[in-house]
Amino acid sequence: MNQLPAPTRIGRQQATSDEYNDGPFTFRPATKDGFNATVAIQGPSGSGKTWTGLSIASGLAEGERFAVIDTERGAAALYVNDLGVAFDTLPMHRYDPRDLQKALAAAAQAGYRVVMVDSLSHFWKGTDGTLDQVEKAKSKYGGNKFAGWKDGTPLQNEMIEALMSYPGHVVVTMRSYVHWVLENGSPVNKGMRAEQRKGIEFEFDVAAEMDENNRLRFIKSRCPSFRGLVLNQPHGAKDIAKPYLDWLRDGGKETDPSIWIDAANAADATPDGLLALYREVEAARALATPLLHPDTGAPISLGELIKERGTALKAASAA
């Protein structure tokens, strides 16, 4: 009878250490430094969300040109003379969430202090949007659409992270619809819901909904001025942008991410210096700041750029 060979004991392999991701957990004094406005306006067609969003963006821009990422067939451009504000548009015709990341990176590269997305709904249910990505991915999992979310969820999350980490103020509009549910066999109106992933409005510091009468109701606000407030035919620059900026600047300072970007690309950068820079950017909640790669032109986050360069320099010095 053949005997099995004696078992060979193998030592437990140590996980590869990542000095960038395995940093210390360090508490720091709370501060409002570096926070930007993030505003979401949702509503049905004709409620005035594009007009209101443009007015808010113009107030946040304080006289500077701002950027509009347009998925609404040029709707924003129709108001350029009526509002008397200067802005540039980028028409989008496909709505892959990765394309929004590219557009945000391009806007950041161009130095726009304010970017508006009109509307964010297309990147959820438009051509090549998140729902389309899930539908395409299910073929990899035997037609299982639920499994397709393994691909769709990261795309959606990375898009939102890039939006929330834009190095400036962000305004988005979203289409909405009446959400009905059956209760005891009867349809019950549960209010308006944005055409985006459920709960998307809670990603923003300020979120409001508009109705067909151009009445705006705040549904979430970290800015105390807006809590429980309802505005009829709001003037976005005066009623929303100004008090929001006043609140952000009360005890808070603006940060300039170009200083970090220049440091990441500096010719005399060192591995230790880049690791320290990563920690500084991490503490400022700016790792996901969208950029265009200086060599390839592909979208990349500020954190990834610093890590890539630091890792490459460390490998070169060890060679």
Results as ranks from 00 to 15, higher is better:
89 T>L: 09
246 D>V: 04
184 N>L: 11
302 L>F: 10
68 V>Q: 02
133 Q>M: 13
202 F>A: 10
222 R>Y: 03
69 I>C: 01
168 G>R: 04
18 D>W: 07
92 M>K: 12
300 I>C: 03
77 A>P: 01
299 P>Y: 07
38 T>R: 15
272 D>P: 07
241 A>I: 08
215 R>F: 07
309 R>M: 07
179 H>T: 05
136 K>A: 15
179 H>V: 03
77 A>F: 05
220 K>W: 06
249 R>M: 11
13 Q>L: 15
297 G>F: 09
60 L>A: 01
135 E>L: 12
181 V>N: 08
123 F>V: 13
221 S>Q: 03
50 T>P: 05
141 Y>P: 03
116 M>I: 12
114 V>K: 01
167 P>W: 05
158 E>G: 10
1 M>K: 08
87 F>L: 05
237 A>R: 00
257 P>M: 11
272 D>M: 08
10 I>G: 01
184 N>W: 07
301 S>W: 03
236 G>S: 08
239 D>C: 10
82 D>C: 05
56 I>V: 15
281 V>Q: 00
286 A>L: 11
76 A>I: 00
306 I>V: 14
26 T>D: 11
20 Y>M: 06
154 P>K: 08
50 T>Q: 03
15 A>D: 07
296 T>D: 11
31 T>P: 01
233 Q>I: 06
303 G>S: 08
80 V>N: 07
287 L>D: 00
97 P>C: 08
87 F>P: 00
203 E>R: 11
120 L>H: 01
184 N>I: 02
259 I>C: 09
116 M>R: 05
29 P>F: 11
6 A>R: 13
189 N>V: 13
318 A>Q: 14
199 G>K: 05
24 P>D: 13
168 G>H: 06
37 A>Q: 02
283 A>T: 13
261 I>R: 00
294 P>R: 13
235 H>C: 07
207 A>R: 02
2 N>G: 06
132 D>H: 15
79 Y>D: 02
181 V>T: 13
306 I>G: 00
147 A>N: 03
150 K>M: 12
222 R>D: 01
239 D>Y: 10
